[in-house]
Structure formats: structure tokens, C-alpha cells
């Protein structure tokens, strides 16, 4: 893009003093955080603290009232922003998977690159099959979402998002709707991604997982970031009483 001076040594996602309200309810009250390329960050906090809203603001599913969010130097909430440019860079996986129920797993993965990016079909299909193998679902290419378990659907959703070749992946409580026995397979998939160097932003309730994979943990409460730090410091030596109270209830 013209005038874009972003380079690798600057934060890939930069959130500065973001305010967001739904009507009279102020959900984000000045949140700032930076994510470097290849970093994995986890946002944790009690429900209603604004973590999902924050992550949805990063790919413009929610608008913001004040502040700035930049992805690779692109101002997300600029009305002149080319939405396609943003969405090509940012992939998102949802709590409810949101697969397209009338398409098979393979078609779900292939749809956006073909229809949106206008890439040739056979090339996309080759890539899609590789992605399905990567999320360990070979053999399920022709299954419809209704025929797959929650964990399998969520892995198809991850593959679908990866098919757009994003630079940043957002995970919005992706294991919250899953049966306990399928949570692990999804977490393993995310871990693989993180280890390959994908920049990941996760909203999660899986504390053990967050501790294991995150480079940095942010704790939000009532619309502000209360505390943040590397996982070991954060979990063992939390300084803020609110963080400590939350962790004592969870762990």
C-alpha cells in the first residue's frame, strides 16, 4: 500500500487508547497494547470485561469511538480503509465455529480464496487439502459441518481462516463451546501454528494453555487492562489485587 511505512520491527498490531461503547455502556475505556510479529498473546479476564469486544475491533467487526488500531500500519477504523486489505491480513476464528453449513469442509476452506481473492481453483484446492491435513482432518474433506464434532468443526474453521494466508490470527474463545475431550485437539492445532511463527491473539479461559504458549498475557477487567506481563511473572507474581483475586478463583 502507498504511504505505508510499516516494517517488521514495528508492532504488527498496535492498539492505542481505544474506547468503545454500546450505547450508554462503555465496554473499553482506553485500552492500549502492542503485538510484535510472531508473538503470541493471550487476553484473559472475567466475562464482560471487554476482551471479546477488543479482539473483534481488531478486524473491524466492531467499530470504535476513539483511539487507534493499526494492523501492519493500516488504520483499521479509517473510513477510507480497503476492508479487503485488512481482512486478507487478519484471520479470525469464532467461539461458535460459524462454518457454512451448506458446504463441505473442503469447500468451506476453498470458498474465500476463490471468490474473494479470485485465485485459480486447482491451486486453491491443493492448498486447502494441505491445510486440512495440517489441522489433522484428512479424510474429512467431503464431510459437511453437521457431520463433524465441535472440535473438528473448529479445526476446519482454523483451516478456513488460514486459507487466506493471514499475517495475524485472532481466536475468540475458540474452545469455550467445545466438549472437554475435543478441547485438546483444537489447542494442539493452535500450538502448532504458534510454533511456526504465526502471530496469534487469543481470548481464552484455558489458563494452563495460556501459560504454556503465550509470550505475553494481558488481564482485562471492566474495560481496562489491569495488568500484563510474561506468563511466569503474571501467574506467579501478580501484583494487582484484582488479578490475584481472578487467578485464585480460576486456578
Amino acid at each position: 500500500m502507498e504511504n505505508n511505512t510499516w516494517s517488521d520491527d514495528q508492532p504488527i498490531v498496535s492498539i492505542q487508547n481505544v474506547h468503545k461503547s454500546f450505547g450508554a455502556l462503555e465496554v473499553l475505556k482506553g485500552v492500549s497494547l502492542d503485538v510484535m510479529k510472531g508473538e503470541v498473546i493471550c487476553i484473559i479476564g472475567p466475562s464482560g470485561s471487554g476482551k471479546s469486544t477488543l479482539i473483534r475491533c481488531i478486524n473491524a467487526l466492531n467499530d470504535i469511538q476513539a483511539g487507534s488500531i493499526k494492523v501492519e500500519g493500516l488504520e483499521v477504523h479509517d473510513s477510507k480503509l480497503d476492508q479487503l486489505e485488512l481482512r486478507k491480513r487478519v484471520g479470525m476464528v469464532f467461539q461458535q465455529y460459524n462454518l457454512f453449513p451448506h458446504k463441505t469442509a473442503l469447500e468451506n476452506v476453498m470458498m474465500a480464496p476463490i471468490k474473494v481473492l479470485k485465485q485459480p481453483k486447482d491451486e486453491v484446492e491443493k492448498r486447502a487439502r494441505a491445510l486440512i491435513e495440517k489441522v489433522r482432518l484428512q479424510g474429512k474433506e467431503d464431510a459437511y459441518p453437521g457431520e463433524l464434532s465441535g472440535g473438528q468443526q473448529q479445526r476446519v474453521a482454523i483451516a478456513r481462516s488460514l486459507a487466506m494466508n493471514p499475517d495475524v490470527m485472532l481466536f475468540d474463545e475458540v474452545t469455550a463451546a467445545l466438549d472437554p475431550e475435543t478441547v485438546k485437539e483444537v489447542l494442539v492445532t493452535i500450538k502448532d501454528l504458534a510454533e511456526e511463527g504465526m502471530t496469534c491473539i487469543l481470548v481464552t479461559h484455558e489458563m494452563g494453555f495460556a501459560r504454556e504458549i503465550a509470550d505475553h498475557i494481558y488481564f482485562t477487567d471492566r474495560g481496562v487492562i489491569v495488568e500484563h506481563g510474561p506468563p511466569d511473572t503474571f501467574f506467579d507474581n501478580a501484583s494487582d489485587p484484582r488479578t490475584r483475586e481472578f487467578l485464585s478463583q480460576i486456578l
Binding site: 481482512r87 460459524n98 470458498m111
Partner: peptide
């Protein structure tokens, strides 16, 4: 059709028209 379908399509860079014709209406 659940709003999640619109959101998922939006985050995959589908336009509103594409979402309507290729994802929502077939369902």
C-alpha cells in the same frame, strides 16, 4: 440465519452482496 454466518463471511473479506448470494441465500 445466525448472525455468526455474516460475521464469519465478513472476516473472510466477503462483501455484503457476496455473503448474501453465496452464503446466506443458499442456506
Amino acid at each position: 440465519v445466525p448472525s455468526g454466518q455474516w460475521e464469519a463471511s465478513e472476516s473472510l473479506a466477503f462483501t455484503r452482496q457476496q455473503t448474501l448470494w453465496q452464503i446466506i441465500l443458499p442456506q
